[in-house]
Design a binder for these strands. Structure first.
Lengths: 200, 200, 200, 200
DNA sequence: AATGAATGAGTATTCATTCAT
DNA sequence: AATGAATGAATACTCATTCAT
């Protein structure tokens, strides 16, 4: 009663996000969400048109958070190389610190989100566009040398995603130290570009 | 009638693999598989104990195919650097040529495969162990320089997986040419290691 | 429409009880119950968690009714022999007047009720405990002579159950009059004890 | 190989009888029987037209065994009272020594055997008819005094059945010794008749 | 004497959703 | 802002039985 009331809509989002992460899309049901929120399933429909809309909201929110997180870390950097590194670092950091949100962006979609309006995924590109632009400027400043900044940016993103998802899915070889793995992977991705530049 | 009869068991596997790829685990149902195979759902149970067993068979088969594909390409190479490249190339190639099998290894698991006997995933490691060993030998021969071959191998695998899955999930920026993306990504992953060596 | 509305929950219990009696446990299905109640099978789950819970409710209710019926008839009797007779009479009477409830207590269990919490069957013992106590007091008052009141009570109960179930299962020889059979059986069970006493 | 080959037909009967006793009708399936017999379900149909026929065979066999067991014990007795006691004793004894067969006679029927041709149950009456006849002769010889031998016989049978089934269903109060319970119950049933006679 | 392949009807249960209140 | 009652379609799986061999 005296506690701060979390609006039901937010509660539903939190519960769904968590359940999605813990148990996967397949066992995410309106009833289970409702039960955890101590309301009836019907109540969810007051805030979300249907299950898809609820999921879309979840994705949009995660995508927005990821973009903003990266921008917050990268935009303050005025040096392009610094910014380049910041984007990469913060991308991985977001995955590690907000696994539930990170996973929603990638996992959900593959399962059910053919239906997710592609258009909205464009938004997700904000951070990517920033990376492209940073690489372009670095190239202009002869700090880097790449054939195609677009391709380079996408490749970096893909590689980082591979690194993050291996860790989040708990597939890391048990003999390997997580922090070491992440650090060296990041370094490898970054160096792959910088060294070439420094060589030239 | 006069056509070559494909055994029902194999038909079921093919259909399941395809449906899994096209529509995801969650919409894979025994009934749908049966309908596509023009048999009753009951018939599936003549060949597979239950849905899990069917999926496990699918995974096992994919894992085996991937391992063998890589070995076939890499083992003939006697030079370690050649073998190193061959492993990487063939891994990506397998993903591109056998997307359904590739996806099963990764996609299915996250959803349902907590139940998949971990022991059998060890098998999946055959190619990975080969990569580790190749790196170790390259290091001994001073062809490469890495802190920890185990970590390096895992990092390479993760990055390649990121690259492959971005393509398979159709998430590639429409302005980007797929072949170029793959080629440059592979080169980047490879060069990241070799250049360091050549520098030293 | 103008009829008194019987709550669905009660309807389901009535229908289940009846079907159980008429067709046995094995052919009792949620679907059939639903069809008889003119609702979908899903609706049953609004009132009962699952089939077992539905059956348990049925058993509990029958057990409770039997106990109360006997107590209602027997407790008012102050004389122990009167009470002894009343317990026996009312036990059989309950079986004859409420065959569906009587049968549930015995028939269902053997089939599915290993799962039924034993603890709840203790309740069923209320009438039995009353019989034990009544015999004990009768013995103390030298109105009866038995080796062991516990054994005597159980033996009486078993014999009565045999008598009742023969009738309810329609196994009575067609040449035999039901009422006569019951009356003489009861008398025999009772006299078996009292005569010994009167002899001494 | 060198073992005595039990004909499959008998194996099936043995397995079915045992499964019926252990797990109840509801979980008795042709497939499970077949699996235990190491044959396919189809093979059962070589010996039994269908599941019902298999069960009927089981019942018939049990009924025959019970009748013969009682006759073997009772017919040699020339004295009617001895024979009366022998019938009762051997009935209970059969239940205790052949619980699987005993249970089939009673348990199965209630569940599925509405379909069992009543005519065949007449056979089951052989022992009962013997009891009736024995009582009739005892009455003629003024060794007993009963209103109606038919009713008396049926009542005895019912009471004994109650006693046996309480024990076989494991419903005996844990504080009660099984042997004592049976002995006293039998004695009570017998004495109920004899004492009256001895008094007169 | 026995099998292997297949079926059709059935089982309990779960799900997203709707509607009247 | 939220509920309670209900649905229709789906799920994995089991069963007795049949048929060709």
């Amino acid at each position: 009663m005296s506690e701060v009331e979390v609006p039901l809509r937010d509660q539903i989002l939190d519960i769904s996000r968590h359940m999605l992460f813990k148990e996967g899309y397949r066992s995410l049901s309106m009833r289970k969400i409702a039960k955890k929120a101590n309301v009836t399933a019907t109540s969810i429909y007051l805030y979300f048109e249907n299950k898809d809309h609820l999921l879309h909201t979840l994705i949009e929110e995660s995508v927005e958070d990821l973009s903003r997180f990266i921008e917050d870390q990268a935009l303050p950097k005025t040096d392009n190389i610094d910014r380049f590194k910041a984007i990469i670092q913060s991308y991985v950091e977001f995955g590690m610190h907000h696994p539930e949100k990170y996973e929603i962006i990638y996992r959900v979609r593959s399962d059910s989100m053919a239906r997710y309006p592609k258009e909205k995924f464009r938004k997700a590109r904000r951070a990517y566009e920033l990376l492209v632009q940073t690489i372009e400027e670095s190239v202009e400043q002869r700090l880097m040398e790449v054939d195609d900044p677009l391709v380079a940016a996408y490749s970096i993103w893909a590689q980082l995603h591979g690194v993050v998802s291996v860790v989040l899915n708990g597939r890391l070889d048990s003999r390997i130290n997580k922090e070491q793995f992440i650090e060296e992977s990041i370094e490898h991705v970054i160096q792959g570009f910088l060294e070439r530049a420094s060589v030239s």
